[in-house]
């Protein structure tokens, strides 16, 4: 198993390296002169040259890349072009906010989604399954800004209009707010993100359970005369839920994409809104930093899921290599 994990880790490092090249390449693509963007149209030739030298743009592209990566790894993330502040603390603060939202979402979404998926899978073909399947299918592809706005209309505006206790429609907390302060503001965004994950995870969990129910060893277990409960828990779910770990890891990607939109719907100060802000201002280093941090987080989450999967799956645990 250690070799398996080592190999996964090796792949991961390679992937992150390649991804960072891609991020670097994309942002290098930026048409026009970076220094012109920074200094504005009226800048003189001298100032432009000085700026280029400062930014190391004279060097060849691979050298620029290595320098950039080295700076990034050593924590020197440079200054934002638009806010003229250090990027590192800014990104970290927003990262924490985004992680809070993500964690709350996963806390709600994963148990709920797995529960629904299992319920549907065990009752495949029956009314309950059809209800769950059709409703998750309907929600699965709705853009987050649609669900988010609908939730705002219902839980914020509609409730308030009727004089009932309502949730805040706007989550623009102070970026440095503590968790308890932020919590009420987190509820609606987390619900929105939950809907996205819920449908996705529930559908795949259901498919896994249905697939598992067809396995020969489930028949063996049944015909051993084990109580139905034991067959379901020990034989069906144990195997069906293993792949769900991987699914949840993959759905992190969805969650990240979703959060970008959701943070903008609710004006929540997370990484996603920072990214859109950076793109609006064409703030190159900020874009790169946000993208790299996101990729790192996504990759680590995947590695964690892989390790957990390997740990729980004897077919990998007891195999060398």
């Amino acid at each position: 198993m250690y070799r398996y994990l080592l190999r996964r880790m090796g792949f991961l490092l390679l992937t992150i390296l390649l991804t960072s090249i891609i991020i670097f390449a994309i942002t290098q693509w930026l048409p026009g002169d970076v220094c012109r963007i920074i200094l504005g149209r009226e800048a003189g030739k001298k100032a432009l040259e000085a700026c280029r030298r400062d930014l190391g743009l004279e060097a060849s592209v691979p050298v620029q890349f290595l320098r950039w990566l080295g700076d990034f790894l050593s924590g020197d993330w440079g200054q934002s072009y638009s806010t003229r502040t250090e990027i590192f603390p800014l990104v970290m603060q927003r990262l924490i906010n985004s992680l809070r939202l993500a964690a709350l979402t996963l806390l709600i979404a994963v148990p709920l989604a797995v529960g629904l998926g299992v319920a549907a899978g065990l009752n495949a073909g029956r009314l309950l399954d059809n209800l769950i399947s059709i409703s998750t299918l309907s929600v699965v592809g709705l853009p987050e800004f649609v669900t988010g706005i609908l939730l705002i209309q219902i839980f914020a505006f509609e409730l308030r209009r009727r004089g009932l206790p309502s949730l805040p429609a706007n989550s623009s907390i102070r970026p440095e707010a503590g968790f308890m302060e932020a919590l009420p503001m987190l509820i609606l965004p987390a619900m929105t993100a939950t809907l996205v994950l819920l449908a996705y995870i529930a559908r795949i969990t259901r498919a896994g359970v249905v697939e598992e129910m067809k396995q020969a060893y489930v028949r063996t277990a049944d015909l051993k005369g084990l109580p139905r409960r034991v067959v379901v828990l020990k034989h069906v779910l144990r195997n069906a839920l293993l792949p769900t770990i991987t699914v949840i890891a993959i759905s992190f990607g969805w969650l990240i994409s979703g959060l970008v939109v959701i943070e903008n719907v609710f004006n929540y100060p997370g990484l996603g809104r920072l990214l859109v802000f950076a793109i609006d201002r064409r703030d190159l280093p900020l874009m790169q930093a946000v993208a790299l941090v996101t990729v790192l987080g996504f990759s680590l989450a995947n590695l964690a899921a892989d390790s957990l999967y390997a740990l729980l799956n004897p077919r990998i645990r007891y195999t060398r290599g």
């Binding site: 992937t15 992150i16 390649l18 991804t19 090249i21 891609i22 991020i23 994309i26 942002t27 930026l30 992190f252 990607g253 969805w254 990240i256 994409s257 979703g258 970008v260 939109v261 990214l275 859109v276 950076a278 793109i279 064409r282 874009m287 993208a291 996101t294 990729v295 996504f298 990759s299």
Partner: peptide, 16 residues
């Protein structure tokens, strides 16, 4: 490596 970037993030970076 492309897929290690969540879809919307990649889209945003490119559009940026």
């Amino acid at each position: 490596s492309l897929l290690a970037l969540p879809a919307l993030l990649l889209a945003l970076l490119m559009l940026g």
